[in-house]
Lab assay of single mutants.
Amino acid sequence: SQTQRTQDENEARRIAEEWKRRGYDVEVRNRNGHWEVTWD
């Protein structure tokens, strides 16, 4: 799996939607004030 971090929730949601469209299983988490998008 791969993880991308961002400070911006909207960006995190956009990234998550992009990977979901490509057929990946995606998880979005808030950790210590930043957002992590993990896909595999």
Rank of each mutant, 00 (worst) to 15 (best):
A16Y: 08
Q2P: 07
A12I: 03
R14T: 08
Q7K: 14
A16N: 01
A12N: 00
V28R: 00
Y24A: 04
A12T: 01
E17P: 00
R14E: 07
N30P: 07
N30F: 15
E18R: 08
R21S: 12
T3G: 07
A12M: 04
N32R: 05
W35I: 02
N32H: 08
V28H: 01
R5Y: 14
Q4R: 12
W39C: 02
Q4W: 15
Q2M: 13
V28Q: 02
R29G: 05
R13P: 00
T6P: 04
N10K: 11
W39E: 01
G23I: 01
R22G: 03
W35D: 00
G33H: 03
A12D: 00
T6N: 04
R21E: 08
H34L: 14
R21C: 14
T38Y: 12
D25E: 12
R13L: 10
A12E: 01
H34A: 12
G33S: 06
T6W: 08
R29A: 10
T6S: 06
G23A: 01
R22K: 11
R21A: 13
R13V: 06
Q7H: 12
D8Y: 07
Q4Y: 15
E18W: 15
E36N: 03
H34W: 15
T6I: 10
E36W: 10
W35C: 02
W39H: 06
N32Q: 08
N32L: 07
E36F: 10
D25K: 14
R31Q: 10
I15Q: 03
E17L: 09
T3V: 13
W35V: 01
A16E: 06
D40W: 15
R29H: 13
R5A: 09
E18N: 07
D8I: 04
D8F: 08
N30G: 05
E18F: 15
Y24S: 02
G23K: 01
R21T: 09
E9A: 07
K20E: 09
I15V: 08
E36Y: 13
A16D: 01
Q7P: 10
K20N: 07
V28F: 04
E18Y: 15
N32P: 03
N30H: 14
A16L: 04
N30Y: 15
R29Y: 11
E36L: 08
A12Q: 02
R5E: 08
R21F: 06
T3W: 13
V26W: 01
E9T: 02
T6F: 15
Q4I: 15
R14S: 08
A12Y: 02
R5T: 12
V26F: 02
E17H: 06
W35T: 01
K20W: 10
I15G: 00
N30I: 13
Q7C: 14
A16G: 05
E11R: 05
D40P: 08
W39N: 03
W35S: 00
Y24P: 00
N10E: 14
T38L: 09
R29I: 14
D25W: 14
V28C: 07
G23M: 02
T38H: 10
V28N: 00
T6A: 14
V37T: 02
W35R: 00
T6Y: 15
N10A: 14
D8P: 02
E18M: 13
E27I: 14
K20A: 11
E18S: 07
I15P: 00
E11C: 11
W19S: 01
R13T: 05
D8N: 10
W39G: 03
D40Y: 15
A16R: 03
A12L: 03
E17Y: 07
Q2W: 14
Y24T: 01
H34Y: 15
E17D: 11
E9M: 06
V28L: 07
N30W: 15
R31V: 15
R5V: 14
A16H: 02
W19Y: 13
T3M: 12
G33A: 03
W19E: 01
G33T: 07
W35G: 00
E17F: 08
K20P: 00
G23R: 01
D40H: 15
E27C: 14
N10L: 12
G33P: 01
G23V: 00
R14A: 10
V26C: 06
G33L: 03
R22T: 02
Q4S: 08
A12H: 01
G23L: 02
V37A: 02
N10S: 13
R21D: 07
T6Q: 04
R22V: 04
Q7N: 12
Q7G: 09
T3N: 06
R13Y: 12
V37W: 02
R13D: 03
E17Q: 07
Q2A: 09
R29T: 13
Q7W: 11
R22F: 06
D8R: 04
V28M: 05
N30R: 12
T38A: 09
S1W: 15
E11L: 08
Q2I: 12
R14D: 05
Q7M: 11
E36V: 10
K20R: 14
Y24F: 11
W39M: 08
G23D: 01
N10I: 10
E11W: 07
T3I: 12
V28E: 00
H34R: 08
V37R: 01
H34V: 15
Q2Y: 12
V28G: 00
R5W: 14
T3D: 04
K20F: 10
W19G: 04
E11D: 07
V26N: 01
T38M: 09
E18P: 00
E9P: 06
N32I: 04
I15A: 03
A12S: 03
R5Q: 10
G23E: 01
R5C: 13
I15L: 11
R31A: 10
Q7E: 12
A16K: 04
R31K: 11
A12P: 00
R31S: 10
R14P: 00
N10W: 13
E18L: 11
R29D: 04
E18A: 08
R29P: 00
V37D: 00
D25F: 13
D8T: 12
R22S: 04
E17K: 06
T6R: 04
G33Y: 03
G23P: 00
E27D: 09
T3K: 08
N32W: 06
I15S: 02
W35P: 00
W35F: 05
S1N: 10
H34S: 10
W39V: 10
E36T: 08
T38N: 06
E11Q: 07
W19K: 06
I15Y: 04
N10F: 12
D8K: 04
G33W: 02
R21P: 00
R5F: 13
W19A: 04
R31D: 09
R29Q: 10
V37S: 00
R29N: 10
V26T: 06
Q2K: 12
E9D: 03
D25G: 07
D40Q: 15
Y24L: 04
N32K: 05
N30Q: 14
V26E: 00
N32V: 04
Q4E: 09
R5H: 10
R31L: 13
Y24G: 03
E36M: 06
E17T: 06
A16S: 05
E11F: 06
Q4P: 04
R21G: 09
Q2D: 06
T38S: 11
Y24E: 02
N30S: 09
A12W: 03
A16T: 03
E27K: 12
A16M: 06
E11H: 07
D25T: 14
R13N: 08
T38D: 04
G33Q: 03
E18V: 09
G23Q: 01
K20Y: 09
E11G: 03
V26Q: 00
S1F: 14
E17C: 12
G23F: 02
K20S: 09
E18C: 15
Q2R: 14
R29L: 11
W35H: 01
Q2H: 14
V37I: 10
S1T: 12
R22N: 06
V37F: 02
E9R: 04
R21I: 08
E36C: 11
Y24V: 04
T38W: 11
D25V: 13
V26K: 01
R22Q: 09
I15F: 05
W19M: 14
R31Y: 12
T38P: 01
E36A: 03
D8A: 04
R31I: 15
R5D: 05
N32M: 07
S1L: 13
R21L: 09
T3F: 12
R5M: 12
D8W: 06
E17R: 07
R13I: 09
Q7T: 12
D8M: 05
W19R: 03
A12K: 01
K20T: 09
E17W: 08
H34T: 14
T38Q: 08
G33R: 02
